[in-house]
């Protein structure tokens, strides 16, 4: 492929991913409200459109029409910069997650991932670590004590859980012998999921993902009873919406990463789709379906947990991170290394 063709394909893929992500994020919000209503035996939003399916659009219009208030004590520039960083990190991370095997069309072979880079997993970790800034800066620049508390709590939390996350990923990398997400998916085949082989690593990764996305039971940064709204207390209008969207986009990315790293990615479970000899486009569609179904189940799990478990206390959160998750992820790494040594996998 020529350079121009690569650029065109990449731009098309970026636009597609952004559109799909934005739609998914807005419907995840709707989904969350319906699930929470179902958990609490309420109805939830069901007025706008059929069963409330147009609710996300109504919400966005409402937020767009609200007045954008910046506190007097706030640092205007950084106050605006913080939500921009949050959104950038949330959407840029998706570039390396593959959703299906390459699509062959018009004589081209197009990998269904925006950037198939050989440091893909590290790229995700790097962007997550940059994401801390959005929250820290939002908390600091608002010029409010509650915001600052939220920001500082959240940075400490994210930095702590990044470590156990990194060590859990190391186990996956040992097996796949590569940092490319596509290679990791292929190394798992259709049934040798990393979740079966290294269950401890799977659990530590999922827990760390909850902490990294600031979801309950780890949503200390925005603990309403103590901190009003946490780091985004002083945000209104679309800037608030940006943080809101970024949080849900991060959930989608966390689910996508868990599927890719531990649940066999886009492959069908217990069944090799390529052995059927179907047309390439059909295979790709089935794989995309399988990827999104796995992701949907995980996202439901995220919501389910949120409406079932109470919030941890801050010291409990830290001691779980450092005294439970971190040693467990180390044990997982040793377990994987021993497996590879003994069975020559």
């Amino acid at each position: 492929m020529s350079v121009l063709e690569i650029i065109v394909f990449t731009v098309v893929k970026i636009v597609l991913i952004l559109t799909v992500m934005l739609l998914m994020v807005s419907y995840l919000v709707y989904f969350e409200r319906r699930v929470s209503a179902w958990v609490q035996n309420r109805l939830g939003p069901n007025r706008v459109g059929w069963e409330g399916v147009l609710q996300p659009f109504a919400d966005v219009f409402k937020l767009l029409l609200k007045e954008d208030i910046v506190p007097v004590k706030a640092n205007q520039f950084i106050h605006t910069l913080a939500p921009v960083i949050a959104l950038f990190v949330a959407f840029a991370t998706y570039a390396v997650i593959p959703i299906a095997s390459p699509l062959k069309i018009f004589g081209y072979e197009i990998p269904l991932v925006v950037a198939d880079v050989n440091i893909g997993v590290l790229y995700v970790l790097a962007l997550t670590s940059v994401g801390v800034y959005a929250i820290t800066l939002a908390g600091w620049s608002s010029g409010s004590k509650y915001s600052l508390f939220g920001g500082i709590r959240s940075s400490a939390q994210m930095i702590s859980y990044e470590i156990s996350m990194g060590f859990s990923v190391a186990g996956v990398l040992l097996f796949a012998e590569s940092l490319r997400p596509i290679a990791i998916v292929q190394s798992q085949g259709s049934w040798m999921w990393n979740a079966w082989i290294q269950p401890i690593g799977f659990i530590t990764f999922v827990v760390s993902a909850f902490a990294e996305t600031n979801r309950l039971p780890f949503d200390l940064p925005e603990a309403e009873p103590e901190l009003v709204g946490g780091y985004h207390t002083e945000y209104s209008s679309m800037k608030f919406a940006a943080f809101f969207l970024a949080e849900y986009a991060n959930m989608i990315i966390a689910a996508g990463m868990i599927v890719t790293l531990y649940l066999g990615g886009y492959n069908l479970p217990f069944f090799n789709i390529e052995s059927l000899g179907l047309a390439n486009w059909l295979t790709v569609i089935i794989q995309i379906g399988s990827f999104f179904i796995k992701m949907g189940v995980l996202l439901f799990f995220f919501l389910w947990i949120r409406w079932s478990l109470p919030r941890f206390r801050y010291d409990q959160l830290m001691s779980i991170g450092w005294k439970v998750m971190f040693p467990l992820s180390l044990i997982n790494l040793i377990w994987v290394a021993v497996l590879i040594m003994v069975f020559n996998l």
């Binding site: 790229y123 790097a126 962007l127 670590s129 940059v130």
Partner: peptide, 9 residues
């Protein structure tokens, strides 16, 4: 990537 993770992050 190490530059971003270690220094920036």
């Amino acid at each position: 990537v190490a530059q971003v993770i270690v220094y920036a992050g």
